[in-house]
Amino acid sequence: MQRVNMIMAESPGLITICLLGYLLSAECTVFLDHENANKILNRPKRYNSGKLEEFVQGNLERECMEEKCSFEEAREVFENTERTTEFWKQYVDGDQCESNPCLNGGSCKDDINSYECWCPFGFEGKNCELDVTCNIKNGRCEQFCKNSADNKVVCSCTEGYRLAENQKSCEPAVPFPCGRVSVSQTSKLTRAETVFPDVDYVNSTEAETILDNITQSTQSFNDFTRVVGGEDAKPGQFPWQVVLNGKVDAFCGGSIVNEKWIVTAAHCVETGVKITVVAGEHNIEETEHTEQKRNVIRIIPHHNYNAAINKYNHDIALLELDEPLVLNSYVTPICIADKEYTNIFLKFGSGYVSGWGRVFHKGRSALVLQYLRVPLVDRATCLRSTKFTIYNNMFCAGFHEGGRDSCQGDSGGPHVTEVEGTSFLTGIISWGEECAMKGKYGIYTKVSRYVNWIKEKTKLT
């Protein structure tokens, strides 16, 4: 034993070699072989497995989906700052455009905790909710729209109204504003409101030439003092309507412009014939205590009207009353817009006519005020429907199939267009061939041609 100890002390290297040989010859039971080890760690190889990531292109799944990435790591994937920024906006807080917040056709661009709407022409605001041009839906104005110097929408209202708090709607500024039905039992019968379409306001006024200088022999019209197929109006439903009495009662109609003036057809009036105007009328054979009678003290036909040349060209006249009318729910003026808007309103496509005229061709006159909704007829169809001249200051309205029309005794009465609950004068009943005849239409004086003249002559002093 002493000898062994001496050998170990003198030859430590020998001992180490012996131990190493023993270990190498022993069977290893701690580690699995290569094949079995792979069965336990069965993990798919990654895209760049075996390579240094710093030297390969980034992978979106590896960089940002398996674990949260930084902007720089995302930049490695896209290799483009702009594309990385677009991805980053949604990656950080989701897609803010998912709810489609942009209105009126706006395009949404996502941002971090926010979004941006790219608005089409005519709109602005956070969600493109603000109209900035009158060309689109009248700028959301209830009545009139004008573009300011910086191309912003400025709404306005006709006389007797003021802008509401929203700067879009119009509200009454006087007790009985024009064009409004205020009798409670008839307010439910107000005709369907007309909503502004998209309009090209630059070209809204037709490029028409008034044929002022045409000389033409007097034409022989049949029954051209021209509501057939209409309905009984309720008291106060058309408070701007008046009836004219002269040699015979209810020979023509008219509309209240203001307390002192009536507008009617020029062919209705004769110099030297006494005319009485009755406002607030409903049943011409009954006294309903809503009527107001006034005498006409002055007749002003349009300066281009000449019955000797043509009885229905420039067929418009103004009547001055001896005493002002007292405005109330049964006696209310009709609204008159400017030339541009009167023309736009007419193009809405349908209007209402009213009167006490004959209820059928050569038949009896109506006792109760009649009204009828009539569609506008395109000019080409209008011209083809008659052998008589249709001037540019006239328009056609009615039904091709016949059966409904204005008729004798309705002449001078109103053709009105309702705009968001307020009625505007767009025409004056003038003439036609018979009444409600198939293929024939009622012919009306186009008020847009005469609004400046009306307003100039009827100013209240």
Rank of each mutant, 00 (worst) to 15 (best):
S217N: 13
A250C: 08
D315A: 02
S114A: 11
E10H: 12
S11P: 09
F251Y: 11
F424A: 02
S329R: 11
Y341E: 05
T445A: 04
G412I: 15
V77Q: 15
I256K: 00
F348G: 13
P120Y: 03
N393K: 03
E323Y: 07
Y371K: 09
F238H: 04
R140D: 10
A37Q: 15
V278W: 05
G439V: 03
N151A: 08
C28G: 11
C170L: 00
Q216P: 12
C268D: 00
A149T: 07
E35I: 10
K347V: 03
D249H: 09
T458M: 03
W88V: 15
V154M: 13
F348N: 13
R404A: 11
R294L: 02
M8V: 06
R384C: 03
E67V: 06
Y371E: 05
R62A: 13
V451S: 11
T190D: 08
K168L: 12
N313S: 09
P101E: 02
T422G: 02
G427C: 01
R226W: 06
A308F: 10
R379K: 13
Q96W: 10
D315E: 02
G442W: 04
I136A: 13
Q57K: 10
E124L: 03
I297F: 04
G253M: 15
C268I: 00
I136Q: 12
L23Q: 02
T84A: 12
C382I: 03
K387R: 12
S255N: 03
N393Y: 06
F424H: 01
S365I: 10
L376H: 06
R83F: 08
P239M: 01
I429G: 10
S169N: 13
E79L: 03
L327S: 03
V30W: 12
I210G: 14
R294F: 00
G230D: 04
E61G: 10
D95W: 05
S365P: 11
G412E: 03
T264K: 00
Y22R: 03
A266G: 05
Q2C: 13
F55S: 15
L319W: 02
T186K: 14
E456F: 07
Q96C: 04
A149D: 11
N310P: 03
M6L: 15
A250D: 06
P175N: 08
T133W: 05
N258G: 03
R180Y: 06
E129M: 02
L20W: 10
M437L: 15
N245P: 03
G402F: 14
F224A: 15
Q57R: 11
K51R: 11
S430G: 11
N258L: 01
Y201A: 13
C157V: 01
Y330E: 04
A207G: 13
V416G: 04
T342D: 03
